[in-house]
Design a protein around this nucleic acid. Structure first.
Lengths: 127, 127, 127, 127
DNA sequence: GTGGTCTAGACCACA
DNA sequence: GTGGTCTAGACCACC
């Protein structure tokens, strides 16, 4: 099954994001084995080098750990993972609020806009 | 005065964003003249080519128009500008919500997180 | 001029080390431009991708900064560089002492062995 | 009891180092029997193949010898062991000094840095 | 089987 | 010209 990727962001970063989110959603837990480089490459319709780079990036961020001859694993250190989830949340919120304010919206408008959107999306497109 | 730019996003896009936001905040109004390419280039400490590309992009989105020998101007057509403001808002909200949900947060948590952040930022760091 | 590399360590890391040491010896100063990827590749007789990886690693450690279309530069932030020099020194010393102690040497023997070596190397092989 | 290993160096080499150091500290003496492959494997939480390779390496360096059906033993030839101790010491010292010089430190600074470190570690963290 | 490195060569985006 | 990404394919080291 070949995945689809956006063109504006590097594939390896899109893979990083995807895996991070799987971790944050608890679909991947501390110590879990990630698919092998070659396996994910085939799965995603991507060159193994690209997956390597993905895993290397995750390792650099201490989110995963590669053991030669064994595989790549989600870190056992769950505090790193909860920190990641929390900081990603904060960054996401901050970016959103600052963006909205730079567009001239004030706080009540921001909250209202958000709630309106949530209402609409409830009976509609996605969960 | 040299501005600072992020390294991960093209400078010309950062300039586009900046100008769009000035328009959305009504600091630039329909028909207003933008600085000349050379002027903005010097001001921002950027290559004139980069500013050229910025203006080209704004033109392409019908937000600005160049008049030969006169300069570049914010479009007179204010409906385009209000549309832009509205759609940017929607996109921003949608991206935020989807991002949060992909991290496993549910709607009440999203709203709560946002309000907590607004509370904290009220007595604090930035406006 | 093709360089020679050891076989036990990846080339890209050997390049990283070399550049770090040039910085620590003040042969490269804050803000200096590094050779272009392609240039260093030719100089070192190595594939450009390998140099890319070198620069990417340096960037990850905040020691260098790449600007697309312009080049790769030693960071302007000299505190990072002095910190690097100091911590590398400490690590080197610690690794040495621990290694010697694990071999059963005691402190006076370590210092004596070092001084003997320095004496010998003074009238001899290298500076 | 599972040991911990660094990820950047092969496990079998880390085991080699560990055993060599036990010999150099006289905790293992000429003729002593090393643990069986299976025993060390379980002890260290490592694949038996990896221990095999460790012993093969030690044999190759003439530091240990395997006797079919009996086990693996530290060599009786104590001259090999003293030579190893001496050459390892020299290599360690040389690597240290060269490293420091490549960082731009001069001889007096090297000695001073070392002594400072020894002072600090005396009243402190480890023996 | 696993991950890690490297090359050759292509194409893109930016300044 | 600069850096950045990706592919194809090879070879190595480890478990």
């Amino acid at each position: 099954m070949t995945d689809t990727f956006q063109t504006n962001q590097p594939i390896y970063l899109q893979l990083v994001e995807r895996i991070k989110k799987e971790i944050m959603r608890d679909e991947l837990k501390p110590g879990d084995k990630l698919p092998s480089v070659r396996e994910l490459a085939v799965q995603s319709g991507v060159n193994p080098n690209t997956v390597q780079r993905t895993y290397r990036e995750l390792e650099h961020e201490k989110i995963a750990e590669s053991r030669r001859g064994q595989g790549t694993f989600v870190t056992e250190d769950s505090t790193i993972l909860t920190k990641m989830r929390e900081s990603t949340k904060q960054i996401e919120i901050e970016r959103f609020v600052i963006g909205m304010k730079e567009m001239g919206y004030r706080e009540p408008e921001i909250i209202e806009g958000l709630q309106t959107f949530l209402q609409l999306s409830k009976r509609g497109d996605f969960e």
